[in-house]
């Protein structure tokens, strides 16, 4: 996926978890848990939705790569090839 596609998907999913969040104000390298006040249950639901929407298995060891917008874009870009 391109960066824009990934960010659109992330915004869509997070809209259901943190409805008041505005991703456009979140720096690309900011920890989403801090920026959006997400707890471990939110992260679980976030990863589960990413898994369901992309088909990627997302092993638990990869979670640290998914905690910033930049990290997410890189992760799913690498996945494409």
């Amino acid at each position: 996926m391109t960066r824009d596609e990934t960010l659109a998907l992330v915004a869509d999913i997070l809209g259901g978890i943190a409805p008041e969040a505005d991703l456009s104000t979140v720096p690309g390298d900011a920890d989403l848990r801090e920026a959006l006040d997400l707890d471990s249950m939110d992260i679980l639901n976030f990863v589960a939705a990413l898994h369901e929407r992309t088909g990627h298995p997302i092993p638990e060891a990869d979670y640290p790569k998914l905690l910033t917008l930049d990290g997410l874009a890189t992760y799913f870009q690498a996945e494409a090839h």
Binding site: S40, M41, L44, A48, P57, I58, E60
Partner: peptide, 17 residues
């Protein structure tokens, strides 16, 4: 938990809580 979660899709994973 890590062993259990390694074999599971994200929605079925367990949290430490």
């Amino acid at each position: 938990l890590a062993r259990l979660n390694a074999g599971r899709a994200p929605p079925e994973r367990l949290l430490p809580a």
